[in-house]
């Protein structure tokens, strides 16, 4: 596979430098942006494979960038990077079209791996995100998702198993080993979950996330 072209979007130059040096040699950094407006213009111009996107920025944050560009540039993959573990931030971004979410403390090797996976059109679930999704799609029929759309609300048993293992800290290939399926099949399940998340009702989802945060 060719080296993915990446745009780094973060309002802190220090952090952009850090990401750049962590990804050195693994990806091609096609540009950096420090504001939402800059990011939108830059991404339209350079059409990268992957955008590494900070969740929290002034003027709308990562959500504004994804909402503006995801429908128009379906070939660009957005990977959210955040220090925030608030589920409403993360879930909203994924819902808007981001293909995954990782925390900023991610190991350098794993970050490059995540970028490559997004470039290949796959989804990237950190253990945290897997945990959020398991919570949102819990089998409990009283949860909002189940009431809105039973089809979307239900994860297949296999999807649930996969998410469970990811939440337990398993890498995709370890999930594959554990369940005796190929890593490609693991990707397939994760992408299916991502799609369900993106198709589900946004309002219900964010309300759920906000409520969860209150009781967390």
């Amino acid at each position: 596979m060719s080296t993915p072209r990446v745009v780094i979007v973060d309002d802190h130059a220090l952090f952009r430098d850090g990401v750049r040096s962590r990804l050195a040699g693994e990806v091609e950094v096609a540009g950096e942006a420090g504001t939402v407006a800059e990011a939108i213009a830059l991404i339209r111009k350079v059409r990268p494979d992957v955008v590494l996107l900070d969740v929290h920025m002034p003027a709308g944050g990562g959500l504004a960038v994804v909402s503006a560009l995801a429908p128009e540039l379906p070939e660009v993959g957005f990977l959210a990077l955040s220090v925030s573990d608030a589920p409403e931030d993360v879930i909203e971004l994924v819902h808007a079209g981001a293909r995954g979410y990782v925390t900023k403390t991610i190991e350098p090797g794993e970050l490059a791996d995540a970028v490559r996976r997004v470039a290949a059109g796959d989804a990237v679930f950190s253990p945290r995100l897997a945990g959020f999704v398991l919570d949102a799609f819990a089998g409990d029929a009283t949860l909002p998702l189940a009431q809105v759309d039973p089809e979307l609300a239900s994860l297949t048993p296999r999807e649930r198993e996969v998410l469970h293992l990811i939440a337990r800290g398993y890498l995709y290939k370890e999930v594959g080993l554990e369940l005796a399926i190929s890593p490609k099949t693991v990707e397939h399940h994760v992408s299916a979950v991502l799609r369900k998340l993106q198709l589900s009702n946004r309002h219900q989802l964010s309300r759920w996330a906000a409520e969860r945060r209150l009781v967390d």
Binding site: R128, A130, G131, L134, D135, A138, A167, R168, G169, D216
Partner: peptide
């Protein structure tokens, strides 16, 4: 050492 904590439900 870093401990990555994920908690579902409570």
């Amino acid at each position: 050492v870093k401990v990555e904590v994920v908690i579902v439900g409570d």
